[in-house]
């Protein structure tokens, strides 16, 4: 098989991975027959060369299933996947040599030793990476001769990462790359991912850690219940449709204000479903129609949700009516966590 091993210019124009309207159903058998479970339901996203794309979502959102369809390990029941312009399910050796995979469960034989297993994986590629250098970089040499079953989760994770990079891939899939890593290994792995991006490699990773996504990702795809709920850069997601309103309003109340708030709060939580539904007597209905979330803990009030200018005006006017200044008052910038919880939070709790 003599194929050119360098990608053509046309290849570089295409996204490294294009997932369109992907669906994946599994037949789950139980006591009295089968029923279909839909793990992925019309999911679409694109991953570009030289970028880190993070699939972010709660456990069971369909992230791993999506990756397995993209890696050619599962045949989708609907939609299309183009990996480097080709169908991964029918991938030949050449396409597989251009994509590296790190599985969530490791994919490592327990009785093997890291050194020999990685050399074996390298032998599958015509132009393998410098495995010794990679092992050095990831600190694998110190346990290269210890059977994999005796290694810690973080050590195994590093071996799995080296296996994914054995063939100098143009696109690399990392399923939960920082799971089980100690802080030092995490830094090493993150540096390696940043370096891959600089080399033009497309990195597609899954995580449920917002911190990882915020630190690593150029492009974040928030997945919940098998579909994409939001996507964009971290900055875009934080800015949202409203240009980046604050994530939270925190107010420290005086003792008097606290008593007043407890007896008749000026704002209330929740989203009213019908106009006729009246709040309890004395409680303002302000906030209900826009779905604010209000908590009072000791003398601190926290308001999250869609904090519009009128929300601030309403609350400050109430504070003014008490005749006292609050002890403190801050508007906190929105974080990726606020965005994530606003999108996925209601469904996971």
């Amino acid at each position: 098989m003599d194929h050119p091993l360098t990608p053509t210019d046309a290849d570089q124009q295409l996204p490294a991975l294009e997932v369109r309207a992907l669906s994946m159903e599994f037949n789950v058998s139980h006591g009295r027959g089968h029923h279909a479970v839909r793990a992925v339901n019309g999911l679409s996203f694109v991953a570009a060369h030289g970028q880190v794309t993070a699939l972010l979502g709660p456990n069971g959102a369909g992230k791993t299933t999506t990756l397995e369809c993209a890696q050619g390990l599962l045949k989708p029941t609907g939609g299309t996947v183009r990996l480097l312009g080709e169908d991964p399910w029918n991938a030949g050796p050449l396409l597989r040599s251009r994509a590296g995979v790190m599985l969530q469960d490791g994919g490592l034989p327990q009785s093997a030793r890291p050194g020999e297993f990685l050399r074996h994986v390298s032998s599958m590629y015509r132009q393998p990476a410098d495995m010794s250098g990679l092992m050095d970089r990831l600190g694998i040499h110190s346990f290269a001769r210890t059977p994999l079953r005796r290694l810690s989760g973080g050590q195994r994770q590093r071996v799995a990462l080296a296996a994914a990079l054995a063939g100098n891939p143009e696109i690399v899939f990392l399923d939960e790359p920082s799971a089980g890593l100690d802080p030092q290994s995490r830094t090493v792995v993150f540096e390696l991912i940043a370096q891959l991006r600089e080399q033009g490699t497309a990195v597609v990773l899954t995580t449920h850690l917002l911190d990882d996504a915020q630190r690593l990702a150029d492009h974040v795809v928030i997945v919940a219940r098998g579909t994409v709920r939001a996507s964009g850069t971290v900055a875009e997601l934080i800015a949202g449709d409203d240009g980046g309103r604050p994530g939270a309003l925190r107010i420290g109340l005086t003792a008097g204000q606290r008593r007043a708030w407890e007896s008749a709060p000026p704002v209330s939580s929740g989203r009213s479903t019908s106009e006729s539904e009246e709040p309890p007597t004395g409680v303002s209905s302000f906030g209900r129609s826009i779905g604010l979330n209000v908590t009072l803990e000791d003398d601190r009030v926290t308001v999250t949700g869609d904090i519009r200018p009128e929300v601030l005006a309403h609350i400050t006017s109430w504070l003014a009516d008490t005749g006292e200044l609050p002890t403190s008052m801050t508007l906190q910038p929105r974080t990726l966590e606020d965005v994530f919880l606003a999108i996925a939070g209601r469904e996971i709790r």
Partner: peptide, 21 residues
Amino acid sequence: GFDRRYGVLRQLATTPLGRSG
């Protein structure tokens, strides 16, 4: 059986070796 349990079959299937190899 144990290679399957530990994901080794899937890992090797994603290399140029592939499932048939």
